[in-house]
Design a protein around this nucleic acid. Structure first.
Lengths: 236, 236
DNA sequence: AAGTGGTCTAGACCACTTG
DNA sequence: AAGTGGTCTAGACCACTTG
């Protein structure tokens, strides 16, 4: 079955905004211009635009035109992003530094979360500090089943983007369950982040699942809240 | 200026549903029948219906017809169910206790978030402690524009469910923007929650918007993380 | 096969914004 | 006055659901 015309148009427009061809606060072409470009009726153009308005990507102003909304408003619940993607979206340069990695045999709690309790498999633990523009913003501890860990160990752990590597190896993530809490910074955390021990940190605990529904990663990250907060848009 | 045709049609349909002429789970007349009754084009009928679908009053099923949604099927925003669900899931009974309420004139920051800076309107501030059974779990501060605040002041602020009251008064929420951070408990927070000052708390800041897109509520809630965490499922 | 909503066209006039 | 999106019409064919 072919995709509806108005959805095709919608996707092209959405892509241009995502790629920065049409930037925030700029007017997109008028309806008449879009009719000519896509060779479709005005109804179809308006249907496509109307969807993007509903999603908060575009905004119409009568008599003036249709405008791209600033990025902050686009963020939606339901998108799975890593730290790097998140930083860039906020205008910071993401970075990281490896603290240590180990292969462990007896992490029963983590193995149970990864659903590998019965297996012989070992767990790779990687600990890194994450940066935004040279400012240490988070301490990240990720736990990987050995078979997947071995893929990461071929990379430079200081710079590796885990999700890109997984994607390159055709291991695709489908969903993640995330739990958000708050903790007081330990002396160890505080030293890595350059803050006072006891400072309240945002703690994000995540289990990511592959297309087959099997857990792939368990991660626990503690963020400084002066540089990172978590934004969600809830809809009815 | 005369009201647009599709809005007139929409209002007639909405009234019939409200008055019970067309009841929950029943199909409303087909588009062709509505065209004949109102003597307007199909586009106009569809525009009217589309608005009601967006508001959660109607539901379309291709090939079958357009149906009135049952009131209890209209989904609540995640935040409310969040606290209640979590409480009940853990076998606790959710409750609350009023600490104080005030009507303020000069809350510039809160007024700007509620988009009422230019207006004379005052702001109602309500501060409550939220309980699971008899354990104080969160300190909640909500800010309401005066006109909406006056609705709440008719209720018992110790037990009132804000969103139920709004719904009864036909003020429906469409979406909310929520920001999650972590803070160290102040002496004041600590006393209300029965914890040590400095303990890390999860801070949830929320602005809720009505169907017309105007902000209705600004809320700031601080949760003890030993009793409440925030769970999300993310999808690619 | 008949009925429903889903998609799409071509065209018209209106209301708002700006030079 | 010219350009923008807002409203509205009449009509066509398609995709899905049910008898």
């Amino acid at each position: 079955m072919k995709e509806a015309l108005y959805l095709q148009v919608k996707n092209v427009i959405a892509k241009r905004i995502k790629d920065g061809v049409w930037k925030a606060n700029m007017a997109i072409p008028t309806e008449v211009e879009l009719i000519e470009e896509f060779q479709v009726s005005r109804t179809t153009i308006r249907q496509a635009i109307s969807l993007l308005v509903q999603e908060g990507v575009l905004e119409k102003r009568q008599g003036k035109g249709t405008f791209v909304k600033s990025h902050e408003l686009i963020e939606q619940l339901g998108h799975l992003t890593g730290f790097a993607e998140e930083s860039i979206k906020r205008g910071f340069k993401p970075g990281s530094r490896l603290i240590k990695w180990e292969i462990k045999e007896n992490l029963m709690y983590e193995k149970s979360l990864l659903n590998r309790l019965k297996e012989e498999e070992k767990i790779l633990v990687i600990e890194r500090v994450r940066f935004m523009d040279h400012i240490p913003v988070a301490v990240e501890r990720t736990y990987w089943p050995e078979e997947i860990g071995n893929i990461h160990l071929k990379e430079d752990l200081n710079t590796v983007n885990y999700y890109e590597v997984l994607e390159k190896n055709e291991i695709l993530l489908k969903k993640a369950k995330q739990q958000i809490s708050a903790v007081n910074a330990s002396v160890y955390d505080a030293e890595l982040l350059g803050i006072e021990p006891g400072t309240a940190l945002l703690e994000m605990t995540r289990v990511s699942y592959g297309i087959d529904g099997k857990p792939i990663e368990y991660a626990k990250t503690r963020y400084r809240t002066d540089y990172y907060k978590y934004n969600i848009t809830l809809k009815r």
